[in-house]
Nucleic acid binder design. Structure first.
Ligand SMILES: [Zn+2]
Ligand SMILES: [Zn+2]
Ligand SMILES: [Zn+2]
Ligand SMILES: [Zn+2]
Lengths: 134, 134
DNA sequence: CATATGCCTTCCCTTTACGTAAACTTACTC
DNA sequence: GAGTAAGTTTACGTAAAGGGAAGGCATATG
């Protein structure tokens, strides 16, 4: 959709808009997550609506705990201009499922940790009791 | 209990026993998690039963996701031999309570993260459905 | 013109939990 | 006495995700 005469935005504004730093945006480009950005006359990076959507998608996945490296595996699915959902989203679903599993594992481990700490706490507490009453 | 004539074990054997590397054990000593180890004649590190228990406890907590830095906060509570509970345990209880709180926070955050991922997943899944039926 | 932004690139810094030599002792064994 | 195995210290390397500073263009404005 956003191909020829669309509004272009510069890196500083984009960063502020998404509450990240310009360094982060350049870094994503550096590792190939954002693709080489088009430059204005003075070499300044410019972003169109597709780019913004892509970056928003990256941030969304990051928020969900997906690593940048994992996103690189998914690189094709970041093309918001491509509407071929049949081939693209199944992989995203796979990765999301994998992450749900990981999160479940972490929750289980933390719950177990909690009971370990609580047990330890009560053992010490008991010792303290018997000490003060002796 | 394990004070004078107890079996001493060397670093290589201990590492193999716990399925870690000697580097890991030395590293824990280096950052102060394990305390300076007693040496044999030839400067070789030796470990008694208390040391082994301490290391096992460290590995247990690590397995549960506690960072080495966090363990350093809990350092005093690792002394399985110290019986001076009057002065020590109140502080330990404080620290443990604090960590129980932290763990609860982490659990809550992960639970919320999980639902976010699940929601996102189902939105994508729906897109896929409507695509294939169209 | 001078100053102030905003952008550019390059490069080193940071944290965590070790891995991996390099160079050397000590001990056991043939 | 040479070899092998296990120990020692010192010290540089690694991944992840950027942070932050140095030094240099370009533009806007008083
Ligand atoms: Zn477009
Ligand atoms: Zn992952
Ligand atoms: Zn003892
Ligand atoms: Zn904690």
């Amino acid at each position: 959709m956003t191909d020829s005469q669309e509004p272009l935005i510069q890196i500083g504004k984009l960063a502020k808009q998404l509450a990240i730093t310009t360094r982060t945006i350049r870094y994503y480009e550096e590792i190939g997550l954002m693709g080489p950005s088009k430059r204005l006359s003075g070499c300044a990076r410019s972003y169109n609506q597709d780019d913004v959507l892509r970056l928003k998608f990256i941030l969304k996945l990051k928020e969900l705990g997906i690593s940048l490296k994992e996103m690189l595996d998914l690189a094709e699915s970041f093309d918001t201009h491509n509407q071929d959902f049949d081939t693209i989203t199944p992989r995203v679903l796979e990765i999301l499922d994998l992450h749900i599993g990981k999160v479940d594992d972490k929750i289980a481990k933390l719950a177990s940790l909690r009971s370990v700490i609580v047990n330890y706490r009560s053992r010490i507490s008991e010792l303290l009791q018997s000490q003060s009453t002796a």
